[in-house]
Simulated scan of single mutants.
Amino acid sequence: MQILFPAIKPYARHSLAVEQPHVLYLDESGRQDGLPVVFLHGGPGAGCDAASRRWFDPNLYRIITFDQRGCGRSTPHAELQNNNTWQLVDDLERIREYLGVEQWLVFGGSWGSTLALAYAQTHPERVLGLILRGIFLCREEEIHWFYQQGASRIFPDYWEDYLAPIPPKEQGDMLGAYYQRLTGSDQIAQLHAAKAWASWEGRTATLRPNPAFVTRFSETQRALALARIECHYFMHGAFLEDNQLLKHMPKIAHIPGIIVHGRYDLICPLQNAWSLHQAWPASELQIIREAGHSAAEPGITDALIRATCQMARKLLKRPPQEEA
């Protein structure tokens, strides 16, 4: 089993102003002349952390991580104004140009896979390859499955806690009811809703219960950004046309990709990854047994580390080394 690379510190940190009022936090670590890779976090709204740069061999990669609009160390916190998928795609191009990167590998999980596909389909000439985990295509049925009916039947106990902030008469439209509270002026109701939303996601992300994972998701500031930004995006269909990402796969059919997906992922069911793989001739699909959605699942961690090493060998054209 492969594990994360040792912790490292960034060699550079940047603040990049984009459309008002947003200022993005980004950092670089690893090898300054290495293979450029950009890490796209989930959510939208989850933000990066110290582990985000540990998926990549620092002796091979120039590792670029950043917090998307409204979350993590980007400011203002939990801001919804000028915050949509296509503005995030534009941000990636701003970051690439700002850092003087010609082409890069794009690595993203969950919502990060959505954004990676949207970016690659918009700027295919800039993408060397894709490593995607926990595929989320942001189709209406996927959003309905997790936030209205579907996953609720697998986790009825956790679902009760997700229902708790919403009166029964509003439960026919959970997304709309949460949106009303998360964007309302009642700060107590907003925080209560944010914690319930984030806890639902945290409790269902792993195959086996992981209390530390749930605690991290439920931390107040993180939960507020995650819940507000996710709900904002999903109320607007992630600002995508119906089934857009699959329809536009011919634009990037030639780009090499590795897809890693847990067989028992109940946030983003395996059918998402299967459909993407069928539409992407240059992709390799790895279905991980005994794994759910989280990148922290041991089998998924192992597969992703192997994928970043494999992709480095391919793109740098180096012979394979014996793996531990």
Rank of each mutant, 00 (worst) to 15 (best):
A50E: 14
E79W: 00
R54T: 06
C71P: 00
G42Q: 09
T220F: 08
L99E: 06
T183I: 09
E160V: 08
I135A: 09
L16H: 02
W145S: 07
F217Y: 15
R126W: 08
Y61H: 07
F39V: 15
A118N: 07
Q148I: 08
T122V: 11
L105W: 05
E141M: 06
I143S: 09
F39Q: 06
Y98R: 11
H14N: 07
D186Q: 07
L163N: 04
R181A: 10
M249V: 14
Q286N: 09
L137F: 07
A324N: 10
R208N: 10
Q286S: 07
A296W: 13
E219P: 01
R69T: 02
A282N: 05
L40M: 15
P10Y: 03
T122Y: 12
I188V: 14
N82M: 05
A198F: 02
G34Y: 13
E140T: 14
G47S: 10
Q32A: 15
L270E: 11
A307E: 01
L130W: 06
E160G: 09
R228C: 06
R306W: 00
F5I: 02
S275R: 10
Q81G: 06
V23H: 04
Y61L: 04
H144L: 07
Q149N: 12
R13Q: 15
P211C: 01
V18N: 02
E322N: 10
A291K: 00
A189S: 15
W280H: 08
R126H: 14
Q286G: 03
P124N: 10
R222Q: 04
P10K: 03
